[in-house]
Write a protein that binds this DNA or RNA. Structure first.
Lengths: 222, 222
DNA sequence: TGATGTATGTTGTAATTACAACATTTGATG
DNA sequence: CATCAAATGTTGTAATTACAACATACATCA
């Protein structure tokens, strides 16, 4: 009783497929364009900076999430083992570049599923509920990315590093070297987890060094 | 054309109700037990530590999210204005206590919706897809909470504060003063955003002061 | 059991930061 | 325009931390 070479008994124990009936199983996998892929140790599954409509479920082995800062320091931000799911938030959003990479920790087998079909189907009977559910999913996924971004922005160990990380992500989001931030100084300090006056001092210092130009909440990267 | 005193034109512009047809609108609100409530400035809408099956949509005014650390310091962690949605992740999970409170910033009107109906309906035609969608929603919501927790654990400005915040949430999760953490020292340092050796020093210091007992990844709060 | 590599603990020092206290700028309001 | 409150900037100091370098404990395996 294997579909795509995948055991129903194995997959029905995962969170993604919990409660999915055996009858719906094969059709669902086909609909989601299920693919099983093998990865060697250290092989990249999802690469930071790229976009994806797929998410993964670990069938065998394990994978880990890697974040890298501007200086190229790599740190492990999480791990997933057999039965666990990764990359759903980005897959749901589709057009948001991944903040982190997912890499096989050992020889592993991963099920890749395409979520684009989830939002395109329309069930006449309960269209409203369906729609609301996918809207909720969208929203929670967005907030997920915002939280991840905040963690990455606050990851450097100096105020200067945190601030530059934040300003760079803002510049990327706005696609411009010049932009306004949605925070006052105290809010920015809270966001980065530092003291307000110390933050002010660092901002002034960066401005004196000609690295940025500032006026209140308006910034320009030089 | 008002339902529950709510204008369709207003709500259909929100992310939650985007794409919901006018025909489904009233039935959907009824199904979700929609309630409109007014709040005065500083009045609490959702309270940290409690659980909720409802999420909110700001109809008028604005609300903000407050986090408070062990010392009682309150900090604003976000704000939501008219049309924006809050509390979905906790509502979807249902049994996870809120890490933060939501408070009205000014006199505001909020639409409260109960998500429990979302997961109980079964559409025979596309049961599998529905199920997978709600499973994804569940998973993304869980990760959302994990990320929020990490931000809160790393919020204090000293290593000592961060560590105690983390250990306390662990103790709460395990419902015991004694527990193992799923990190080695380097991983814990990364999680809290601090230097490993400095973290080791603080751990030793806390142990010397009789505040904790440690052996490797096994901790006991005293 | 001994050897080896990894994880953890320790220490000293330079650098950074939190904190408090105060100065300045800004924006709103009468 | 004067006044006021809030936001932002500045500075000095004590405290904390990052960092590097090394010591010790622990686990794995020959």
């Amino acid at each position: 009783m294997a579909s795509f070479g995948i055991d129903y008994n194995l997959l029905s124990k995962t969170k993604a497929f919990a409660g999915v009936g055996k009858n719906d199983f094969e059709a669902l996998l086909a609909h989601l364009k299920a693919k099983v892929r093998s990865y060697q140790r250290e092989e990249t599954i999802f690469c930071a900076g790229q976009k994806s409509h797929q998410f993964g479920i670990v069938l065998q082995g394990s994978v880990h999430v890697e974040g890298s800062d501007a200086q190229g320091n790599i740190s492990v931000m999480g791990a997933f083992h057999a039965g666990e799911m990764f990359g759903e938030a980005y897959a749901v959003l589709g057009n948001v570049p991944l903040l982190t990479s997912v890499v096989a920790s050992e020889t592993s087998e991963v099920l890749l599923l395409d979520v684009r079909q989830l939002t395109t189907h329309v069930c006449a009977v309960c269209a409203g509920l369906d729609r609301l559910t996918t809207n909720l999913l969208q929203s929670v996924a967005e907030k997920n990315v915002m939280l991840s971004r905040r963690i990455q922005d606050a990851a450097p160990k100096s105020i200067r590093g945190k601030l530059l990380a934040y300003l760079n992500t803002r510049a990327q989001m706005e696609r411009s070297r010049e932009f306004d931030i949605p925070f006052n100084r105290q809010q920015l300090a809270d966001y980065l987890g530092v003291d307000r006056s110390a933050l002010s001092a660092v901002i002034s210092s960066l401005a004196r060094q000609g690295i940025i130009k500032v006026h209140r909440s308006h910034f320009e990267m030089l």
